[in-house]
């Protein structure tokens, strides 16, 4: 035993950020895979919410086509928000989040890895399901195409902004974290909703959408750059 320790003092393998990032991502995906029964929940929720609208309004195709972009995006917003807690919750409960905070890597990049994993687990499936639901609401082919593009640009923003909200609320013992989380996160989701739903609506009407897509793209760049920093700061506070 002494020998092992002594040798280790003279040579050590320095931490590598790239390896840590990939390991973090891989770990979260493995965990999600081991709980794969729960992966479908946000998708089922998404489908149910969208199908409530024809039932609550009326199934007139013209009406559905008009409201479809907004309905799908609002439902995606809610589904993404409800799944946010999983980014940090279980790691907080079993103490692995402490270990992540104590690693010799920039915390924001590890948070980015976790957020990317969250998007792959929830955002991407929502994105893939969206055109099916769009079809149910009688959306046109062009509109579906733009829906996919806005989804690809917009759903990562939802995960990124959401990571800040979860990081702020993960330490709360009172169970009210969920409601509080929606109060913190939903107002910040509004720009995504506006530009994404509008782009899809415009595409359905045969109008230009590059402006909206450009704005969504820059919002995505902005959130990739800043959200992990804020979430990392929030985590350090939450674990205080």
């Amino acid at each position: 035993m002494n020998d092992v320790t002594n040798i280790a003092k003279t040579t050590a393998i320095e931490p590598s950020l790239g390896r840590a990032f990939m390991a973090m991502l891989g770990r979260d995906l493995t965990l999600a895979y081991r709980h794969r029964a729960q992966l479908a929940n946000p998708l089922v929720f998404f489908t149910i919410v969208v199908s409530l609208f024809p039932l609550g309004l009326n199934p007139d195709p013209d009406l559905l086509r008009t409201i479809a972009p907004g309905v799908i995006w609002v439902a995606a917003l809610l589904a993404a928000m409800l799944s946010l807690d999983s980014i940090f919750r279980s790691d907080f409960d079993d103490g692995t989040l402490e270990q992540i905070l104590l690693s010799p890597h920039p915390l924001s990049l590890l948070v980015l890895a976790k957020t990317l994993a969250h998007w792959l687990i929830t955002g991407l499936p929502l994105l893939l399901l969206a055109p099916v639901l769009g079809g149910l609401l009688d959306m046109s082919g062009e509109a579906l195409g733009v829906l996919m593009i806005t989804g690809a640009l917009g759903t990562p923003i939802l995960s990124l902004i959401g990571s800040i909200g979860v990081a702020l609320t993960v330490g709360l013992r009172s169970g009210g974290g969920g409601v509080l989380l929606s109060l913190l996160v939903l107002p910040l989701y509004i720009p995504v909703l506006i530009f994404a739903a509008n782009a899809v609506g415009n595409a359905a009407g045969g109008f230009e959408v590059t402006g909206q897509l450009a704005i969504l793209g820059s919002l995505l760049a902005l959130s990739v750059g800043l959200a992990p920093l804020a979430a990392a700061a929030a985590l350090r506070i939450s674990l205080n």
Binding site: I164, L184, P187, A230, I237
Partner: peptide, 28 residues
């Protein structure tokens, strides 16, 4: 809504210093 979120977070965290800092991140 943003103000209400700030106040809700502030009041949900027991430790006052932590509450001030968490709500501070939200404000920024």
């Amino acid at each position: 809504f943003l103000y209400l979120g700030f106040m809700a977070l502030q009041s949900a965290i027991e430790d006052k210093d932590a509450a001030a800092r968490a709500a501070g991140v939200l404000a920024i």
